[in-house]
């Protein structure tokens, strides 16, 4: 199986003497759905932002490779990082849509890398491209709001629009940074279901950071737990018992176990519409 992501000895220091990432090594195969687990401040966001090439690791420390191409090495971004980013969809905790643009334009930005510059400058998209955008909006179930400004939608709807953007982008790796932390339980479940279906039916690799163990258990086979910037666990969620979590995190463990759980899994989800 091809390797979607390979991180070697990545470290990052924001304030001297305090490592945000500490010698992280990680390998994710294509088609996997992995949960990055950790209490707040454990380095989840930092790690994801390094994978997308928004931030560079410390000089002389390790490398990040996505789909066999370097994103960064020795604390320097690859020259072709923008070309590589087209393969990586990013879903943010705060959605990061452009509030004053309609949903369609927000989603269409996902395919800017396939649109010639002379058209993208004038926001001129072909009928096929608009159709592709509508299909993606339908796949995540918000096509009826297509013409509305993003800022008029609820958090859950905005987050699904952000996922639709990664669909038209045809990303092979989706990084979701706490995608449900700002959502209510029902909206959170819809977002997680959508990500799981994209993984299952399109074979897209998904790495999603969370701080709730029970949600991690429900949605994936592999959990990578971070603590103080180090990978402290990598395996099935089943073995990640409360006792083990207490061993790893101490008092912080309650944040991972106690709260924020969407209601128990309901009826089986409909297939991803095509």
């Amino acid at each position: 199986m091809a390797i979607a992501l390979e991180i070697r000895q990545l470290s990052k220091t924001f304030t001297p003497g305090q490592k945000a990432l500490d010698n992280v090594n990680l390998r994710v195969d294509e088609g996997e759905m992995v949960v990055l687990l950790g209490a707040s401040g454990s380095g989840k966001s930092t790690l994801l932002r390094h994978i997308a090439g928004f931030v560079c690791g410390d000089a002389g420390s390790g490398s990040v490779k996505v789909l066999d191409r370097y994103v960064q090495r020795d604390g320097k971004l690859a020259r072709d990082v923008r070309a590589l980013r087209t393969q990586i969809g990013f879903v943010f905790q705060q959605f990061n849509l452009v509030g004053r643009l309609p949903l369609t334009t927000n989603v269409l930005t996902g395919m800017l890398h396939r649109v010639p510059p002379w058209r993208s400058v004038f926001k001129w998209f072909t009928r096929d491209e608009r159709q592709r955008c509508m299909a993606a909006l339908a796949q995540v179930g918000i096509d009826k709001y297509a013409a509305q400004r993003a800022s008029t939608l609820s958090g859950g709807q905005q987050q699904r629009a952000a996922i639709a953007r990664t669909l038209v982008q045809e990303a092979r790796l989706i990084l979701a940074d706490e995608p449900i932390a700002s959502l209510d339980p029902a909206a959170a479940r819809k977002v997680m279901d959508t990500l799981a279906r994209i993984n299952r039916e399109l074979g897209t690799t998904v790495i999603v950071s969370l701080h709730q163990v029970d949600i991690a258990m429900r949605y994936c086979q592999r959990v990578v737990a971070l603590h103080q910037g180090r990978v402290v666990y990598d395996g099935t969620p089943a073995r990640l018992t409360p006792a083990l979590l207490h061993d790893i995190y101490g008092p912080l463990a309650t944040e991972l176990i106690a709260h924020g759980a969407p209601e128990a899994q309901a009826a089986p989800q409909p297939a991803l519409a095509h």
Partner: peptide, 13 residues
């Protein structure tokens, strides 16, 4: 800056 980062994440110029 967040929406700009959203656009950047798609690989846009």
């Amino acid at each position: 800056p967040r929406p700009v980062e959203g656009i950047r994440s798609t690989g846009a110029s």
